[in-house]
């Protein structure tokens, strides 16, 4: 059996853990952390597929590197928004950001 299945199973499980956390928790910083978990799961899938399936001389690893870079940018901007919001509302709980609620 192709070991790639095992690695992809790990990626699926980690992705779903992250998805659950991103949906269920209210702290915005924790939601960002769970997004990072999901991105890591995608990276595992990419690197494993590149390793065991191949056919693209290293593009899998490079894509993982690009995703890591973009994740860093995403965290920076996301946390800056959280901090700016915290300054106005004194909270990081997502259900308190309800100005647009009718």
């Amino acid at each position: 059996m192709n070991p790639l299945y095992w690695w992809l199973t790990l990626a699926v499980l980690l992705f779903c853990i992250g998805a659950y956390g991103a949906l269920a928790r209210r702290n915005v910083i924790l939601v960002i952390m769970c997004l990072e978990l999901m991105l890591n799961a995608v990276n595992i899938a990419l690197v494993a597929a590149a390793q065991f399936r191949g056919g693209s001389e290293g593009a899998g690893s490079l894509f993982a590197l690009f995703i890591i870079t973009l994740a860093a940018a995403e965290v920076t901007v996301g946390l800056a928004i959280v901090i700016a919001n915290y300054r106005n509302k004194r909270t990081v709980q997502a259900d308190r950001f309800d100005e647009l609620k009718g």
Binding site: W7, E36, N43, V47, A48, A50, Q51, A64, L65, I68
Partner: peptide
């Protein structure tokens, strides 16, 4: 996990960045 997958560079970047 990356190191186990023989992707040394990604593993190192993971430790550095993440």
């Amino acid at each position: 996990a990356y190191a186990l997958l023989n992707a040394e560079l990604v593993a190192i970047v993971q430790i550095l960045v993440y």
